[in-house]
Design a protein around this nucleic acid. Sequence first.
DNA 1: ATTTTACGAATGAACGTTCGGTCGCAAAAA
DNA 2: TTTTTGCGACCGAACGTTCATTCGTAAAAT
Lengths: 188, 188
Amino acid sequence: MDAALALFAERGFHGAAIPDIAERAGVAPATIYSHFAGKVELVNELYRRAKLALGAALLTSVPAAAPMRDQFAALWRALVRFAREQPRAFAFLELHHHGDYLDDASRALELRVLTPIAEVLELGRRRGVTKDLPPHPLIVTVWGAFVGMIKAARLGYFELSDDVCAQVEATCWDAIRAPAPATGETRS
Amino acid sequence: MDAALALFAERGFHGAAIPDIAERAGVAPATIYSHFAGKVELVNELYRRAKLALGAALLTSVPAAAPMRDQFAALWRALVRFAREQPRAFAFLELHHHGDYLDDASRALELRVLTPIAEVLELGRRRGVTKDLPPHPLIVTVWGAFVGMIKAARLGYFELSDDVCAQVEATCWDAIRAPAPATGETRS
DNA sequence: ATTTTACGAATGAACGTTCGGTCGCAAAAA
DNA sequence: TTTTTGCGACCGAACGTTCATTCGTAAAAT
């Protein structure tokens, strides 16, 4: 499974051949079929594992009863840790998002990870601490920014230092937080 | 080439077979080889075309001597228009970014599109209108957010209405603009 | 008449997958 | 203790299919 995860993450589902995966695992191609029914089942199993790992990493590390700003910071740190500790799982998830070969069970996991975050954001919206917008656009914006950061770092555009992570985190928080109310003077 | 662009955008390089492309084009597979040397040359030609189209769309639509806020808005509008008018080219670029099969000529185009934007951001940084950060993290953040928005809309998470586009644009501008200087009272 | 363009058919390679059988090992039988 | 049995993991070899690509030739365009 390690070999499959690595190759799928590197070359995508169609680009990773079963013989290649087997060779990387130090195993005969036929051996794979004594553990998985086929290539599709293998990729689905990997997808579910990676998605669950990501979801668990997020849920367990965000304090439920903290200020929204701290929750966001904790969420960001959890994301960074996951992307650093399991870079292949992260790249795999990114690459196989919504592939035709994913079955219903794999697709259902998408919402299980997304909805808790959406609920937190919806709460922040009612409290007036995040922007008065529906949660989904905000989520995909932040998620897209995070993915962009990780991708760029992986491609060598810059180093994924703690500094850069913190700076981009602050940048994303500025994106979703409610604008400061106009106290006193107004502009046009 | 239309057929190839569509199939590459849908299934990726390895997932799009030459016979499939030929069938979609209403042509025999051998015919493709009287126009392109091979599959790799075909995908590179498509990549270059799409990348140049995107670069042209950006460069021509951003007023050089306007306030940075307006430049950013124009840039965003150009991106939205490109993603709307040529959705397959946009998806294709997104999917084939940094594939092994891309040659040096295709890879070189990456910088040609990126550096003008980086220069604009560098200027804004010196003027104090955007954040005091290196341009690359800001660029990948905004670009990632934009891609996330387009992807989510394509997958049906929400409709890509003018309203949503404008809201996310404002969100991204909040992300990269300089924080308001502390005038008068200071907060710890 | 000559050059370009398209195609049907065929090629070797690589694909995902199957099958029959060998191996090592732990439990059961002697 | 020794032998036998059962079993799951593994593999070499093969299957039919599909892949990217080539070639000789026919049609079309100039």
